[in-house]
């Protein structure tokens, strides 16, 4: 279990004011749970992810992974970034094996494990290529394989498909579901796409901005349905899917109106 307990974050602005980015947010991510944080920009979803990853300390509250409090980044939490952060001077295989190299895993073992991971994300033929030779979607798959390599306890994904075209994006969502099913990894995923959140999450947290807080929690069944049927169109065009999508859309718009009225 990853537990975020009453997390608040305040930033100081340049002109000396204090801005609250996160207001007493609590999240529980159970083993093999797929939790998606959904919201417009400025709702603090990236702030939570950065705090869980250990890139950002909390102003108040605690985060613990399986009972151990978090202080700073570590190989127990794999991160997939929105912008790909592959090293341009390393081959795909060496990029995926980077975490294993840091951990001192021998070259031979590294090769075997990297091969298995590249197979998992469908890039077995590209181990000798360099990042600049790959498309955006392929690079993000490498990013996922790299984050999985050191066998983290949880995968943190910060709008990983935000920069991809919509067709590639859907393929990546389906790939991620099969990766999740095969590895049983806990995933904390951030997106501003309602459809993506509903399709992927076993739990969806709807967030509203200024200050960032959770305004709704849903447990959509769609990802498990897709994992069974492998028919994404059927899942996404089902009436229940549309119904929940509209409900969440209304919720996001409502919080927006509140903000506008207040201003």
């Amino acid at each position: 279990m990853l537990t975020v307990d009453q997390a608040s974050v305040y930033f100081a602005t340049r002109d000396g004011r204090t801005v609250q980015a996160l207001d007493r947010v609590s999240i529980d991510i159970p083993d093999s749970g797929f939790v998606v944080a959904l919201g417009a920009s400025g709702c603090g979803k990236s702030t939570i992810l950065n705090a869980i990853a250990g890139f950002l300390p909390l102003s108040e509250g605690t985060i613990a992974l399986d009972g151990r409090p978090i202080s700073g980044p570590g190989a127990d939490r794999g991160v997939v970034f929105q912008k790909d952060t592959l090293l341009p001077w390393k081959t795909i295989a060496d990029n995926v094996g980077l975490g294993l190299k840091f951990a001192g895993v021998s070259r031979a073992e590294r090769r075997d494990r990297v091969e298995a991971l590249l197979q998992l994300v469908g890039l077995a033929d590209f181990s000798a290529a360099y990042p600049y030779e790959l498309s955006g979607g392929m690079r993000q798959r490498v990013g996922i394989a790299r984050a999985l390599a050191p066998e983290p306890d949880i995968l943190l994904m910060d709008e990983p498909f935000g920069a991809l075209d919509s067709l590639t994006r859907e393929q990546m969502q389906e790939l991620l579901v099969s990766v999740w099913k095969r590895t049983g990894k806990r995933i904390f995923f951030i997106t501003h796409s309602i459809e993506e959140a509903l399709f992927l999450g076993t739990q969806v947290l709807v967030m509203s901005p200024r200050p960032g807080r959770i305004v709704g929690r849903f447990d959509p069944p769609f990802m498990r349905q897709f994992a069974e049927s492998r028919d994404a169109r059927a899942v996404k065009t089902a009436p229940e899917f549309a119904e929940l999508r509209e409900e969440i859309r209304a919720m996001l718009h409502a919080t927006d109106t509140v903000k506008r009225d207040a201003a």
């Binding site: 890139f55 570590g74 970034f81 952060t85 980077l98 975490g99 840091f102 050191p150």
Partner: peptide
């Protein structure tokens, strides 16, 4: 870029 550093740190 700071993301590159953060990526490496979260890879241990």
């Amino acid at each position: 870029p700071i993301e590159r550093i953060n990526a490496a740190r979260s890879l241990g």
